[in-house]
Amino acid sequence: MIATSTFHYQPTDHEAEKASNSYVMSMIAIMGGLPLPIINLIATFFFYLGNRKGTFYVRWHCTQALLSQLFLIPFNSAGFWWTVSIIFTSETISSQYIAYILTLFIFNLIEFIGTIYTAIITRKGRHVEWWVIGGLTNLICKA
């Protein structure tokens, strides 16, 4: 699910720190994003603003962190609005709803663990490419 490799150039310590920080920010966004998906959206926006002019290594990892957040938004939003409809409308709590929230929890947890791992590896100046997200980042982020 996560492919580790060396980057085509050796990122400086400063670059590695910045790239790693984007995943630290992402981690915080994941924590808040399950109950309130708008946090994912805000986090992605700030990633973009802060790092659009960075070096390629920084940009690449910020984009990957950004896309990983975007990927969660539709799933978390569906869970959020389902919960709202249970509280405020005639919709009732069901096994399907609980299963969906558990599924969200599992995948948010996987992403959370993956983010911690990626933050550690990128801090060492290594390159980490995620399943789906890595490919999309390659498509978007040009050297």
Binding site: A3, S5, T6, F56, W60, E129, N138, C141, K142
Partner: peptide, 10 residues
């Protein structure tokens, strides 16, 4: 998986 990554190699 470990390898040497290069941009625009795809």
């Amino acid at each position: 998986m470990v390898g040497n990554w290069r941009p625009n190699q795809f």
